[in-house]
Design a protein around this nucleic acid. Structure first.
Length: 146
DNA sequence: GCCAACGTTGGC
DNA sequence: GCCAACGTTGGC
């Protein structure tokens, strides 16, 4: 799961411990949260749009998916008038802090392992998804780099 | 700041 | 349903 550290970084997650991953307005990313995430699933916390983009920490999925309340709030910047509480368009899960990595596993470094990480969407060209699945083999390999 | 790669919107 | 125009993401 990606986040911009200026907006909400790993230090913010450590401080609050658990956070609703609201504001996602991309259907693919929504589908991953709504349909595939289960409580206890591991999460790579990725910093995007910053000096050193990369994986900086670990989290876990803390809740089942539920409708994103910010979509119903006209004062919220993620308000979506097309999302009806009777038929919500956007879903999210809560994410719970696990730990920071000992060091940042930068995108640059991860790309150096393209052979072992083939199919890992994070390092795929043109990838813009903020939420994406990680295969077990890729998860283990990435953690082995720490 | 640039720009590639998408995703979305809306006219037709 | 097509596709041009536009907006956004995010690395560099």
């Amino acid at each position: 799961m990606k986040s911009e550290p200026d907006e909400f970084g790993i230090d913010d997650l450590e401080r609050v411990q658990q956070e609703p991953w609201d504001g996602v307005r991309n259907y693919q990313a929504r589908n991953f949260m709504r349909d595939q995430m289960r409580i206890g699933d591991g999460v790579f916390f990725y910093h995007s749009n910053c000096d050193v983009p990369g994986i900086v920490g670990l989290a876990t999925v803390a809740t089942e998916s539920y409708p994103d309340p910010t979509a119903f709030d006209s004062d919220d910047k993620h308000f979506d008038p097309k999302s009806d509480p009777e038929n919500p368009r956007w879903y999210l899960v809560d994410v719970k802090f696990e730990r920071k990595l000992k060091r940042t596993l930068s995108l640059r470094e991860l790309k150096e392992h393209a052979d072992e990480l083939e199919g890992f969407r994070l390092i795929a060209r043109g990838n813009r998804l903020s939420v994406m699945p990680v295969e077990k083999a890729h998860w283990d390999y990435v953690l082995g780099l720490e």
